[in-house]
């Protein structure tokens, strides 16, 4: 892609990444979401799915770049994609905290309107024990939270000045954890569906291909290097 198109392409990718959020808000405003028996469940799955999908898209950047030198510009979109994955993962977590766990959103809103912001915290304290219990006892929540914490660390260290401050090596070492985050996200998905449900297989297959491509590349690269060494020795 010619460099002069990059700014436009970036705007386009921003907009594309925001489309799901816009669709969700539109479904809320039109009343379509209210027709769902359990809108919380819909929002949870929606935000969780998009977090995972964007994470997979961001992991596709490196293998795609290797396909053709003309795709090398894609690296300019990787941080953005990762940050949007983090945005949806955070919305997913917020859905759990504020909508799923029994948080009294209405009371908190009323409190805020009446000028008592303390109500927000008071209500949070009420659900805290339930959430703590969930984190202690439920492996699918642990593994999901693990994935989110990694994404948080990657998001916090994503600005260029942080990269410089950390040094390239350290930064790279930390950002390899994105693989753990993606694997954990898939495991989270498998562990939450009921026995016999195989919905997560597509996401898992895509992740396997993306990770497999890296392994294959690495193997080829090693052979090429070994070949070079051998020819030099000869």
């Amino acid at each position: 892609m010619p460099t002069r198109f990059l700014p436009y392409a970036k705007v386009l990718v921003h907009l594309l990444c925001l489309v799901p959020l816009f669709v969700l808000l539109q479904r809320y405003r039109s009343g379509a979401l209210a027709l769902d028996a359990d809108p919380v469940s819909t929002i949870t799955h929606f935000t969780g799915n998009w977090a995972l999908w964007l994470l997979l898209v961001s992991l596709a950047v490196t293998p795609l770049r290797r396909v053709s030198p003309q795709l090398s510009n894609l690296i300019r979109f990787r941080r953005m994609l990762g940050l949007y994955a983090f945005l949806y993962a955070t919305l997913h977590l917020a859905t759990y905290v504020f909508l799923f766990s029994g948080y009294d959103v209405q009371a908190a809103m009323d409190g805020l309107r009446a000028g008592h912001p303390g109500v927000v915290w008071e209500n949070f304290k009420l659900i805290w024990p339930t959430m703590l219990g969930d984190v202690q006892k439920r492996p699918f929540i642990q593994v999901g939270l693990f994935s989110w914490v990694i994404l948080l660390l990657l998001a916090l260290t994503s600005p260029t000045f942080v990269l410089r401050a950390m040094g390239g090596k350290n930064w790279q070492r930390l950002h390899y954890w994105v693989y753990a985050a993606a694997v954990a996200a898939c495991v989270h998905f498998w562990w939450l569906v009921k026995a016999g449900v195989r919905t997560p297989w597509k996401d898992t297959a895509v992740l396997a291909v993306l990770l497999g491509a890296r392994v294959a590349w690495k193997a080829l690269d090693n052979r090429r290097k070994a070949g070079l060494v051998a020819s030099r020795a000869a």
């Binding site: 979401l33 209210a34 028996a37 359990d38 809108p39 919380v40 909508l99 799923f100 766990s101 029994g102 959103v105 339930t130 219990g133 969930d134 006892k137 439920r138 492996p139 699918f140 562990w191 939450l192």
Partner: peptide, 22 residues
């Protein structure tokens, strides 16, 4: 008696509201 993946101490009641009540 908890389900292995979630507590059974509470339930999310789906009745007339937009959000289920816990």
């Amino acid at each position: 008696v908890d389900h292995p993946r979630w507590s059974q101490g509470h339930e999310r009641r789906i009745d007339t509201g937009f959000l289920p009540r816990t």
